[in-house]
Design a protein around this nucleic acid. Sequence first.
RNA 1: GGCCCGGUAGUUCAGUUGGUUUAGAACGCUAGCCUGUCACGCUAGAGGUCGAGGGUUCGAGCCCCUUCCGGGUCGCCA
Length: 595
Amino acid sequence: METVQGLKRTKYCGEFRAADIGSEATVFGWVQKVRNLGGLLFIDLRDRTGLLQCTFDESVDKALFDKAFPVRGEYVLAVKGVIRPRGEAAVNDRMPTGAVELLANELRILNTAKTPPFEIVENTSVNEELRLKYRYLDLRRPDLAKNILLRSKTYKSVRDYFADEGFIEIETPVLMKSTPEGARDYLVPSRVHPGKFYALPQSPQQYKQILMVSGFDRYIQIARCFRDEDLRADRQPDFTQIDLEMSFVDRDDIIAVNEGLLKKVWKDILGLDIEMPFMRLTYKEAMERFGSDKPDLRFGLELTDLTDTLKGCEFKVFAGAIEAGGSVRCITVKGGFDKLSRKEIDALAEYVKTYRAKGLAWVRMGEEMTSSFAKFLKPEELSALLVAAKAEKGDVVLIVADADKVVFDSLGALRGEVARRLDLIDKSLYKFLWVTEFPLLEFDEEAGRFVAMHHPFTSPMDEDLPLLDTDPGKVRAKAYDIVLNGYEIGGGSIRIYNSELQSRMFSLLGFTKEQAKARFGFLMDAFEYGAPPHGGLAFGLDRLVMLLAGCGNIRDVIAFPKVQNASELMSGAPDFVDDVQLDELSIALTRKEED
RNA sequence: GGCCCGGUAGUUCAGUUGGUUUAGAACGCUAGCCUGUCACGCUAGAGGUCGAGGGUUCGAGCCCCUUCCGGGUCGCCA
């Protein structure tokens, strides 16, 4: 094993160009590939920037050639030599450094390596489980390395923006008090206080509001957050937020600051000028037009409400849903006749059942019209339906009748599924959207009470304040989400800053005064010492980077992600700990995984 | 917790209604030859508890049951 003593890197491997011809160079890296032609040996050396071909010629330096001979893939090398042109026939146009090569005059084998369990190449089809177990090798692959570099650039862009806008970066504790509303907390036992636990933050929400009371009126933090809930392609239990809070502002001030942020990030990272201001929809509009509070606006397929048209019809499926207070809605797939066969519609019917729809009624408008339900409707009812749905020859109408929530969930999801199947999505588009005026509360059937849709510190809209006592379900909140291409990339609200209103909120949510005081007392106390009007927003940084990187999976932009059962395959976390360690924490286990 | 998909050399895959003796291919790996390759080429070679356990059968990679692992998703995610 040799050392790097006396060597200094001239440039990264991927940075050499024709302009460097004739210069001396020293590079460090990993062996991508050895091509030994017998007497002439090429080594492609890789670092995080790319590849450089290093050449060893037996006829020039026999001893050096012999030293390079046993080099294998992923060995760690230092190579010193002269950059020279490859010669016309030997230029490789497919690589950025393809016009040059490093003719070696010194080689140090800094380390050997075992043959990796998979090849270190771009666009791999290797099973993700194996890649995650050997994450250090996976991260050597250019596509993954590129994502990690892009993420780093994003941090810089974000920090630069907020610094320029007068924001102050402040760290809040990772060990904090458990806040039982909302997601499950990760708990950390206290050694010093037997039986007591810290919680890891689901977000720095209360701390940042306290910072507003303290007068740091523009706060930002790139904050690690933790939620002990099940994973998804776009959800990890251990994730990162761009968290911000501002005082003396209203909703539109916060929206403006964050549109500015996204504009800068898209320019810095992708070189794109995004259109401002962004589109806005109220929650109600978003649900009625797209069946979702995070609609993908890259395609149409908007929902149509058929409830009034079908009121009084005899078809039980429709009539029953309407009588029960639900609705009948559809999406009309223009030109869908050629693309959606009976069989494919059956598959879509199965798809909507995962969203609790009982079925999917349909009309196919070919030469002859066929439908799953036409015989149950009077001819004039059917034609009224088709007029309302704006359905013409060649179209397909897909209908769900049920409670509003089921209709919206299933048609909202179906919109996306149809768009994917019919390839209606232009992947080059970035469609940003603000969704505003979310409901303040939603009724939790299981708990038998209202719960905060956003969180309990969200301010109701002023004009809806009178409804708080009479019809709390109708109260809208000063809450807003930022949506991009069907993903919720951030959300926030104007907060309650009046301790009296905050108390009313807590009692609406079913807390007794004592419970509220025990859980949130420090915040309510703080609000009695001059809380400014304030509000903020938090972005899901991982999701944002995922969309910037153009991947559909959050794991590909996180260096060491967790898998679906929340374990980490490389380190093997979580794991059992020694009894001694448990005893020190005053913890006795009632269950183990093996039981 | 529910539903769907997947698991066969190091890797990616093929493997017929359950029956061709020794489960194949490509890439990778090892060795030899080769001076302009870059998907180097040529020759030879090594490499498999078919995720695991049980069952059906004269016979199981293939059928059945259980289970483990990974992915997607519903619930869940203030």
